[in-house]
Nucleic acid binder design. Structure first.
Lengths: 187, 187
DNA sequence: TATCATTCGTACTGATCGGTACAGAAAGGC
DNA sequence: GCCTTTCTGTACCGATCAGTACGAATGATA
């Protein structure tokens, strides 16, 4: 049979898009097969655990991407204010101004939440922690930094929901602008 | 056969809970049947259009509840600051501090969004408009009122996502407290 | 060219999906 | 007392679900 992909990791972005668009339950194997161009044989070869293993792999890749591009910069930068600003720009681009759903957030609202509870909690907890640390280093008081970080991380998720429901990416941009100002405001 | 319910509206809250917990795709007729105690015969008697009609009816009821308990008070009150404060208290109770999912928001993130796009957009648009009007009457400038309203409505949705992912209702409460302060702050 | 593990398509399983058909029981009018 | 309308359970439909089995094609090695 014809070879289509060399690496399991090659299909993860395609897989992620299917889960984002259809959710965990809605992402049927036939949809996944169509989106990846892989038959069931290949799919179960790469992911013996089936759909659940596919979702875990996708979540791990997303987690790794945010760790490298968002969380770590927030923790390790020498210029926390610039790092916070970069975080908003990076996430706005990643979520395509609300046109792209946050898979972690969407799973948190679905009945698949319990299945992946630990990973979902971990993702958001590390995001809030990293942002809290950056805000504290930027001059916010310890308790205010945590509260603002929660408001910002939650606010980004809410911006995705609202922009998608209203079908208005400009609403996403405006909310993020407000959140950024709140993070960088009184230091 | 034994009669179980008298009115179609009696099953709407049960139906809503099934959709909230399992999403549109995940709410199978067998789950719905179990949750409502109604067989398929009764279900299709009340909702000839099947699942889609059930979801539409549930959305209409939710919309009606928010219109009566949240949107209209914001529009018609003589004390806009008190009305805004009441909105936060009412929604916190309705969403049970993030333990209960917002069905409208969850559907907006799912692949059922297109099916109900108009209703989802309408719900959030009216919420933002009503809150904008109240904030303007409370003394905010016209452009600031709109921006804060979007941030607040989105923020509530994000608070549900975050509190549910972290399994921490206190995060929901803290975020709402911050949003309320932002709405009532500099008037 | 022969070998061999890896990769892949297809056919299949049993279960469940949303929806339909229909017979029969309860309720209400008379 | 019927008799009509309103409700309700159950059996069934074709389609699709996640997952398994397995043979065939492939690419690397030799």
């Amino acid at each position: 049979m014809a070879r289509t992909v060399a690496e399991r990791s090659d299909v993860l972005p395609l897989l992620a898009e299917v889960f984002r668009e259809h959710g965990y339950e809605g992402a049927s194997l036939s949809l996944i097969s169509k989106a990846t161009g892989l038959g069931k044989g290949s799919l179960y070869h790469f992911f013996p655990g089936g759909k659940e293993e596919m979702a875990v792999a996708v979540l791990a890749e997303i987690d790794g991407w945010f760790e490298a591009n968002v969380f770590r910069p927030l923790r390790e930068t020498n210029d926390p204010r610039a790092a916070v600003a970069t975080m908003f720009a990076t996430t706005a681009e990643y979520f395509r101004s609300g046109r792209r759903v946050c898979l972690v957030g969407a799973l948190s609202l679905s009945d698949a939440r319990d299945r992946f509870a630990g990973r979902l909690r971990d993702y958001f907890a590390r995001w809030v922690e990293a942002l809290t640390a950056a805000l504290a280093r930027a001059g916010h008081g310890p308790e205010a930094a945590g509260a603002i970080a929660e408001e910002a991380v939650g606010g980004i998720q809410g911006a995705v929901v609202l922009a998608r429901a209203l079908d208005r990416p400009d609403v996403f941009e405006r909310i993020l602008t407000g959140l950024r100002a709140r993070c960088l405001g009184t230091a």
